[in-house]
Write a protein that binds this DNA or RNA. Structure first.
Lengths: 356, 356
DNA sequence: CTGAAAGCGCTTACAG
DNA sequence: CTGAAAGCGCTTACAG
């Protein structure tokens, strides 16, 4: 399996010989801020050009003890929210001159092979999107001085930072919106029940509904999965006391739930049934769905994630930071409208109670 | 920016000291196949465990001249086909014990910073999904002994391999299907016109239609972009001689085209208009769209890609290979059906002319 | 099977 | 500003 030989690249010594300078001079030429005379630099650059020299990042990493690689662990790529995040993450990390080592899939169990790989490559930071770390693993990162940021999840663990939307408030806002729209019976299709994001969204929703005397939310479990969300929707819509308003924990599932409602149960949305989602991801904006949904400020969330990481890397000190960003309830066509509270901002219709 | 200090990891020397053996013995313990006695190995393992030792992959790469990293350059992540590919790629590469360094965005121009990064990290192979390489850059890879595989594109360039679907045949099949369905006026919404995939799909489509006497295909340019596809569709559907059958170069655009047809022009699909796509990606299967589409055998394509790469890495010899895989025309609800040729295979309805 | 030693391609004090 | 030299953490002939 390792029979072949990759041609070794051009080295700084070869360039040095060609340029008639020391190897150190070559190194300095390619080290921003190193002291080198313009004359030497010029000679080096010329020789490097001729030979097609590129500094070996691997060798540099070994000595600087910095790989300039950030590990990103990401699951649920079939939910377009995450590819969007990945693209933005790639852009911002490149801008900071960092590379992105991608690991797809969850990282749940305690001694994960994925985690082993991360550590072997001496990554400078770890971003976990839609997944968490066991306490054992997060301690290991802290001990190794590697900053960890959870994206779209949060945790109480020391030394693990997080970036999330104001999920609880989002859940509340959705409940207010549906109450104001005159709905009478409420459903919820959950994500993974143990995820902080799901817990917070539901807690907010439940809180406001309970205060309005609605203690009987009909709950189905979707686990952030289309298939499971469909199954949960089927069960929910077949009930004699079918809800007339359902909050689905993310848009990815909401799309599936709408298809079940319309094409399997012949329900008219929003006349028979209102659906509200979360994320404001691509398909939510497609005319066929037009999902009313709590937006997540994806770009700002990614920016905060990179920001936390860069700060901790440069300070060399890891202290958990938790950034919580606000979104808006974007109003489209999947839910009945309240009489008031709808405002238009920058071409989007938002629900801002008390502001119409 | 580089103020902080990452704690250095445990090294093999420290483990050696603790275990009372040489540093070489530690190295051998972690090198599969190296000669080491069970007794020594045990001592080393115990010490490694206590200290939390993990071999430093960076140092190993430096000396073996293999990074075990594959660079993946990918654009169009908002087209779900690519996240699917990415996930599968991650799985297969992990299985082969390779890591995935992701670069998002195109790699068009001649001296790209992305390319520079690839080379600096001494990646063992490069996968370009939905993008190509300039001849200059591909020569540089060949010179460095780094295998390159194009995914979903092809090229004549020496030393650059490719994996594609049988796109020309796919275009033909679609034309046959639409002709058999009794359509009379044909449209095409293209991807990026210079891409091999687009050229081949259109060539096959055109070929069969021309043979049937249809030389007047109405063409709009979508550039694989939702927005542009919508604009192209608007123009096409506003024509007095609006086509009654449109082949859209991929499903990602077909979804947008369907929304325009239905919600902006009030067209009934498939009664007023048949739409056929390409890829068989997630949304094509959603009930709201139910797109009739040429499937791309994504998993087999990814497998072939990894397979080519692994072969060239282990043989140490780079010779362009071109793998071309077949798909099926999956029949759903977005196009009128021919009287015959529809067969059911494994729960999917396919168009196989001459086989009903 | 084992250890001492060389060396991978760099960065970075150190001395000039 | 510049060069000689040490050293980052490993792998791998080499000799025993």
């Amino acid at each position: 399996m390792d029979g072949g030989v990759k041609k070794p690249g051009v080295t700084s010594s070869e360039v040095a010989r060609r340029a008639g300078v020391s190897q150190s001079a070559v190194s300095r030429t390619f080290t921003p801020g190193a002291s080198i005379s313009p004359k030497t630099r010029e000679k080096v650059m010329a020789a490097a050009q001729e030979l097609g020299y590129r500094p070996n990042a691997i060798a540099r990493s070994l000595i600087t003890n910095r790989s300039r690689i950030i590990a990103v662990v990401m699951a649920y790529l079939e939910n377009l929210f995450y590819p969007d995040v990945l693209e933005e993450l790639g852009r911002l990390l490149a801008k900071e001159n960092y590379r992105l080592l991608l690991f797809t899939g969850q990282m749940d169990r305690d001694s994960d092979p994925v985690f082993d790989q991360l550590m072997q490559y001496r990554v400078d930071g770890i971003i976990l999107a839609s997944t968490t770390l066991s306490s054992h693993l997060s301690e290991e990162c802290a001990a190794a001085g590697i900053p960890v940021v959870l994206f779209n999840r949060t945790t109480e663990r020391d030394a693990v930072s997080s970036v999330t939307a104001r999920n609880r408030e989002g859940g509340r806002r959705i409940a207010e919106f549906l109450l104001a729209g005159g709905h009478r019976r409420f459903g919820y299709i959950s994500g993974i029940e143990s995820s902080s994001t799901n817990r917070d969204r539901f807690a907010g929703y439940q809180e406001v509904l309970a205060a309005a005397g609605h203690d009987d939310i009909v709950v189905g479990v979707g686990n952030y999965d289309r298939g499971e969300a469909e199954a949960a929707a089927r069960e929910m819509f077949a009930r004699p006391d079918r809800p007339d308003a359902v909050f689905v924990a993310n848009d990815h599932m909401a799309v599936a739930v709408m298809d079940v409602a319309r094409y399997e149960f012949g329900l008219n949305i929003p006349d028979d049934l209102s659906i509200v989602g979360y994320d404001d991801v691509g398909p939510a904006r497609w005319t066929a769905y037009g999902i009313t949904t709590m937006s997540q400020p994806m770009k700002r969330m990614v920016e905060a994630t990179v920001n936390i990481l860069m700060g901790q890397i440069s300070r060399g000190e890891i202290e958990a930071e938790h950034r919580i960003l606000s979104g808006d309830l974007v109003v489209r066509t999947s839910a009945r409208l309240p009489k008031s509270g709808i405002v238009e901002v920058d071409g989007r219709r938002l629900y801002k109670p008390g502001k119409s």
